[in-house]
């Protein structure tokens, strides 16, 4: 059904555009470069999944798979580089009672 295929293709393009705008918003409003990249890659994975539903040849399947793998690897690398949140040390830094 060409109409359905065209709708899915348009949805994939829209997902890419939304990802770009959301990543820009994250970058400008305190998400940080890593966070913005992760947001963009999540939307690109969504677009890749939409395109994968149209894949009918080996080449199309391989391209979709490679794209998704590369994006997931980049997201994983970004999350490894992000340091874990520092523990709260309020109970350890309590001041001694003054004499």
């Amino acid at each position: 059904m060409p109409a359905v295929d065209e709708a899915v293709r348009t949805a994939a393009v829209l997902a890419v555009v939304m990802g770009l705008v959301a990543a820009l918003a994250a970058l400008l409003r305190g998400g940080g470069p890593g966070g913005a990249m992760a947001v963009l890659l999540d939307f690109l994975v969504a677009a890749g999944l939409l395109r994968l539903s149209l894949a009918q040849t080996w080449t199309a399947i391989a391209v979709a798979a490679l794209t998704i793998v590369i994006r997931k690897v980049v997201v994983a690398a970004l999350s490894l580089r992000t340091p874990p949140p520092a523990p709260r040390l309020t109970c350890l830094t309590r001041r001694a009672p003054e004499a």
């Binding site: 899915v8 949805a11 829209l14 997902a15 939304m18 990802g19 705008v21 959301a22 918003a25 994250a26 400008l28 409003r29 998400g31 947001v39 999540d42 939307f43 969504a46 999944l49 939409l50 539903s53």
Partner: peptide, 20 residues
């Protein structure tokens, strides 16, 4: 499945803008 993915992306986009 494609509808769920697209609706999720659109809803997340709106929420991203609200969070920003």
């Amino acid at each position: 499945g494609a509808t769920v993915i697209f609706v999720g992306a659109a809803a997340a986009f709106v929420r991203f803008l609200l969070v920003a």
